[in-house]
């Protein structure tokens, strides 16, 4: 289903070029639940964003069901994100001025072509999806009135809204306590089993990593699969390795990272 080959990624800040990923090769099968672990700045989130079509500024190829993401136009890639992918972020990224149902129905605003829902149908579906994450009673609540676990479940409901085939979760339990994190993990497991959704979770939490079918470790821009010291697959050439490794991945907003690391 997902096929990465020779993926390189660097961040540019003015004339400064900071390499992050070095020729990553990775395959993820349909319905598989995979965790990506690794130290901060190793390129886990970068990998996730690239698979999700949020970042096209890389070298190499990422194919999803045989379609090269980089070959897609902006509109096609937007449609891919809308219909095919559901994102779950560490800080939930809910819109505070909208109700839970409106947040969940947000993807309906940008739907194109077949399956486009009317506003009332979209809200009805949003209520259904909120019911699946046990938040039927919070349909009209604002996210600011919810607990962290409830907010993350709203975010998961938003990711599930368009019945995606792929869920990409970036530290989904990073801002939750262990009990709430466990509950969220159980939800992912259930979704994977019930809907056959491919779930890719970036995490620091070994509990979550152990609960997934497969763990991919990213370290220094390379993918190590299975155990920490067993490179599964790299295609970085030797010369590229002479470049200095980044201490950390450049962030637009370093505060959440700091919170996560804390």
């Amino acid at each position: 289903m997902i096929r990465l080959r020779g993926m390189h990624k660097s961040y540019r800040t003015g004339k400064l070029v900071t390499p992050v990923l070095h020729g990553v090769d990775l395959d993820i099968a349909q319905g598989e639940m995979v965790s990506i672990v690794g130290p901060s700045g190793s390129g886990k989130s970068t990998l996730l964003h690239a698979i999700g079509g949020l970042d096209r500024d890389y070298e190499g190829t990422i194919e999803v069901d045989g379609r090269d993401l980089r070959a897609m136009s902006d509109v096609e890639l937007s449609e891919y994100r809308n219909r095919y992918v559901g994102f779950v972020f560490q800080t939930f990224n809910l819109l505070p001025h909208r109700t839970c149902a409106e947040n969940v129905a947000l993807p309906a605003l940008f739907a194109r072509g077949e399956g486009t829902l009317t506003p009332s149908d979209a809200l009805a579906r949003a209520r259904d999806v909120l019911g699946r994450v046990d938040l039927s009673d919070k349909v009209d609540a604002r996210p600011t009135t919810l607990s962290g676990g409830q907010r993350q479940r709203v975010a998961i409901a938003r990711a599930l809204f368009n019945r995606p085939r792929l869920m990409l979760c970036d530290e989904p339990t990073g801002n939750l306590d262990s009990v709430m994190g466990r509950a969220i993990l159980d939800l992912f497991v259930r979704l994977g089993e019930e809907d056959g959704i491919t779930v890719v979770i970036v995490t620091h939490d070994p509990t979550i990593a152990n609960a997934t079918q497969r763990t991919v470790r990213v370290q220094d821009g390379r993918v190590l699969e299975g155990t920490e010291d067993t490179p599964a697959s790299t295609s970085a050439d030797a010369e590229s390795e002479t470049e200095s490794e980044p201490e950390s991945e450049p962030e637009a907003d370093p505060e959440p990272r700091a919170r996560a690391e804390a």
């Binding site: 902006d74 509109v75 937007s78 809308n82 990224n93 993807p107 940008f110 739907a111």
Partner: peptide, 15 residues
Amino acid sequence: REIGVMRAVGASQGD
């Protein structure tokens, strides 16, 4: 951030 979320759920540059 709101714009980023919209892009993540399917908004194109044109949207």
